[in-house]
Design a protein around this nucleic acid. Structure first.
Lengths: 193, 193
DNA sequence: CAAATGCGTTGATAAATATCAACGCTTTTT
DNA sequence: AAAAAGCGTTGATATTTATCAACGCATTTG
């Protein structure tokens, strides 16, 4: 199961990965299975783990005062699940992360991640790349959220992330886009014409 | 003028900064003055520079088909101005960055930044911290954009960023929040009561 | 197998926000 | 000093989106 992670790392670095380094990485990541609906992180806890998704699908969301869930992230294979804000700032998380499908993870503690970044150059390079990409994706989404109508946001999302459209039910996609499931249903109806 | 940058770096790293390293940094950053409204980056160009703001205020925005500007970032002293998406992906930028006030920058090429990250550990640590923070800020904003009403978004922003409220006119703040200037004006009127 | 839950849809209505136009005031430009 | 541009506000109205309630169908659960 670790091989998926090692492949992923090799694909995201220009530096070589020695077998010593490989061993370090294997030692830091523990396989973990989550059944659908099980939590990886619960609101109020400090996020101490980072999970690489080898198989499955997860979601990160907040719950407002009215009990409504707001999806902030959707994850599938090759994504990293964690609340970076909580992990970096060591503050209680405002989010929940749970499995949407039965999921296989490789889990490391935040402390082990920092250690690997220091000791394994290719790992450091890979995480830097990830940080940059996450930021870019986040900026794009933000720009879309403040600039576009609900319809355009959905179109853009469907064009750029067809995998998510297939994998998650519409009401989660709607929440992810910041609109209600009814509105998304109507937008899709329009779009067909 | 470089001293502001060096101070900033020291404040954001746990590692020491040797005088050799200091020299490297000084050599990479060129002072540059921008008068109000001058461009740092124009839409369609690949972003080749990163600017540290020693004094002044800037903004990053896209312009939609109707010619409406959408503010994606506001910058003041100690902020880094650049379009990361364009700089990392080497794609033409969708954004403009210009000076809102007369501004003093320390400018490095993206290539020099990469070089410094490699050669100066504290610089690498600092940029990693910046990447993480940008992502966190961006995630928070996104969460606010999809979860909150315009009123709450404004409140939250005003509470967390009073400096921006004082420094930029209301119509820019409105655009930054993804609402029209008229709506923001009405929200503020309500809030006073 | 029956019951319960999850999902998407539709209709009626309400609420939030945008649009368009106009105005007064200040600051900048000529 | 006059003209122009920038800024915030207000009113009237249109558009977008949310809310609430109900339904049918499929899937999961006991």
């Amino acid at each position: 199961m670790h091989s998926k992670l090692l492949d992923y790392i090799r694909r995201h670095t220009t530096l070589p990965l020695t077998s010593d380094e490989e061993a370090l990485i294997r030692a830091s990541f523990r396989p973990k299975k989550l059944r659908k609906k099980q939590y990886f992180l619960e609101e109020g806890n400090v996020c101490k783990y980072v999970g690489f998704i080898a198989k499955g699908a997860m979601r990160q969301y907040s719950v407002d005062d009215k009990g409504v869930e707001h999806i902030v992230q959707l994850y599938i294979e090759d994504y990293w699940a964690s609340d970076r804000e909580s992990a970096v700032m060591l503050t209680p998380s405002k989010y929940n992360i749970d499995a949407w499908e039965d999921t296989e993870l490789l889990v490391a503690t935040v402390a082990d991640m920092l250690d690997l970044i220091e000791k394994v150059p290719s790992f450091g390079q890979m995480t830097r790349l990830m940080d940059q990409r996450s930021f870019i994706v986040s900026q794009r989404r933000l720009n879309s959220a403040i600039s576009n109508t609900a319809e355009k946001r959905y179109e853009e999302f469907a064009d750029n992330h067809p995998q998510f459209i297939q994998r998650f039910p519409q009401h989660l996609i709607a929440s992810f886009l910041g609109i209600t499931k009814e509105t998304l249903s109507r937008i899709r109806k329009q779009a067909i014409k």
